[in-house]
């Protein structure tokens, strides 16, 4: 065999291996997705949306409590994380730019984005749950809000920087003060990008379980009291799935399916918005 023939053979083997690993990875991932869809859909029914949690064995049990709780927690987290994240991103892109401070903030925020979320839970436990003396929706929402800030900050910073400088200059030339230029020109130019960032931020915290375990804790019953422990889909999945009761496990799969569809939907929507924005340009 000549050197070139040998190279061609090695090429084939190596490419086959890498294709094989792609198939293995895809196989596992579709296995998980398949299980999720099959188990989830078979466990779905209207009762899930009508009834709240009940002791095992009770046919009138559902996930209403967890769905509403999840919505409340995410809504509050969004109310905390989005404004702070957007304002911080605005500072980096419009004021801080390449200053040392801006770079430090970007770096720290990037690290925060990958930092263990359970640690944020421990932190919020110390600053909210301990002083209050009990678990609460507030604590859960603050934990999620903190996790959300870096995600929003990063996309806002990136998206605002994409707005062309001439647009700002044109607005300044008309005599507009800086805050007006930012609010009416820069934000408008980066609208789609910021929206995508917000959706991805929501998707990111929507799937978080660990920081809720000892902040909002969980509850098997419907509540809207923000000063009490608040049920969430994710912690409910954890509790139901690790319980020995089959009907609870079923509900766990249904919750897992709903949660995954919600998060995938947000991700897809975010991408579509960004894509549509790009096409228009």
């Amino acid at each position: 065999m000549t050197a070139v023939q040998k190279r061609v053979l090695i090429n084939k083997i190596a490419l086959a291996f890498s294709t094989l690993s792609a198939l293995i990875a895809l196989g596992f991932l579709f296995w998980i997705l398949g299980v999720l869809v099959m188990k989830g859909i078979s466990a779905l029914n209207w009762n899930i949306f009508i009834f709240e949690g009940a002791p095992p064995g009770n046919p009138e049990s559902g996930l209403k409590h967890a769905l509403v709780g999840q919505a409340i927690l995410i809504g509050m987290a969004t109310a905390i994380g989005v404004p702070l994240g957007i304002l911080a991103g605005t500072y980096l892109s419009e004021y801080g730019k390449n200053s040392k401070l801006a770079h430090t903030i970007r770096d720290i925020s990037d690290i925060m984005m990958s930092a263990p979320s359970i640690v944020i839970g421990a932190f919020v436990y110390a600053i909210v749950v301990m002083p209050m003396g009990h678990f609460s929706a507030w604590a859960g929402a603050i934990a999620l809000g903190i996790i959300m800030i870096p995600v929003i900050l990063r996309t806002t910073d990136d998206m605002l920087q994409l707005v062309p400088g001439e647009l700002r200059e044109a607005a300044f030339a008309l005599g507009a003060p800086k805050y007006k230029v930012i609010l009416s020109v820069v934000y408008r130019g980066a609208k789609a990008g910021i929206l995508t960032g917000v959706l991805l931020g929501i998707a990111r915290v929507g799937g978080e379980t660990a920081p809720l375990l000892f902040t909002s804790f969980n509850d098997n019953f419907f509540t809207t009291d923000l000063n009490e422990a608040m049920p969430s889909l994710t912690v409910t999945i954890f509790n139901y799935a690790t319980s020995p009761y089959e009907d609870w496990q079923q509900l766990g799969w249904a919750a897992a399916f709903i949660l995954s569809m919600f998060i995938l939907g947000l991700n897809i929507l975010g991408r579509l918005i960004l894509l549509a924005g790009k096409k228009r340009k």
Partner: peptide
């Protein structure tokens, strides 16, 4: 197709991976 699936799968909450691991 594959690239987007991989990115979407990266967004699936880890609690789902854990649950799958436990049962399957």
């Amino acid at each position: 197709f594959f690239g987007v699936s991989v990115e979407l799968l990266a967004a699936i909450p880890s609690v789902i991976y854990g649950m799958w691991g436990l049962f399957f």
